[in-house]
Amino acid sequence: MRLLFNELKKIIFTPAVAGFVLLALIVNAVIVFAGGGDYPPPGAESGASALTDYYEDYDAAEIIAGRYIARHGLTGTHAANVRAKYERLQAVIDEKAASGDGLSPYFGEATRPLHRLLFRALFGAMTAETALLALFAALLSAGYENWRNTEGLVYTSRTGRGIQRVKLGAALAAAAFFFLLIAGVTLALFFIRGDWSAVWDSNVSSLFNSSVSEYWKPLITWRSFEVLPYLAACLSVAAALTVCFCLLGFAAGVFIRGGHVSATAALALCALMFVAEPIAPVGGVLCGALNLTPVQLWVNVGDWFTDGGADIIWANFESWGLLASLAGLAAVGAGALAVFQRKDLG
């Protein structure tokens, strides 16, 4: 326990880390207070009664899939994959029409900018910040002995090498701490600025809301979400992504000795996940798989639990992506630890 606490202190009290946290909170505060979207006056009529339920008779395969297929010139299995996703989504849309999800008031005409401010801009910033902090916390933790030239002393015994497990625990604890701190303070500021209490049970698929992924379309979630549960679900995804980046950083830090090399390798891997996806053909399995990687899950913030764009071919991509990423990175991390136990550090 004392070891864990000491390893945790090494991470949290590093000046660069503390400075990054402060900078992150300042940036988020700027987004909260300068971000677009005016709240409607209290008691104002939302206009929901004048809405026509667009979900009735909405043919997703024809309209959305058809547009994506035409725009990207998709043929063969790629077109079939995109169409298949929207054929599956049709049952969800019919359910939304039956339950009247689309007629939910939310914030009325102010829905779209406010929804995007919270679930795209703010969540995007928070997730990026905590993910980077988690990545660097793990790199710092795993590579600390190399940095301070104490490897030769600490890792000469089995007990010493076992400290890497404690370091992993410390990195995860630090990641959790950063997530709670940044998300907590940011959301507190956000909900102080604007009162969302009246919309917690509005449906996010309200027809006042929309998604723009190459084309305008309604925001269609695979399951019916009210605002508060949707917020909780998005927080869970963001937290899980933070853990993914922590595991990624730890694996890089243990596999590759040398702080600069391991950090460069970790960042290069993140960059690779970012640039590889646009190269893969839209509608293909490779493109779909690349959208399950941690970096692309972050890029798709704002589309979590929805149908996403043409490049996403599976339902609930964020859940599958997190499952695959966590399992894969945990396996890689465990492998790295096992290798490290026997590695010759000479």
Partner: peptide, 14 residues
């Protein structure tokens, strides 16, 4: 003004 690679990278991000 950086003495370690990881802290350098962390400062380099912003």
């Amino acid at each position: 003004f950086s003495s370690g690679a990881v802290t350098l990278m962390l400062k380099a991000v912003p």
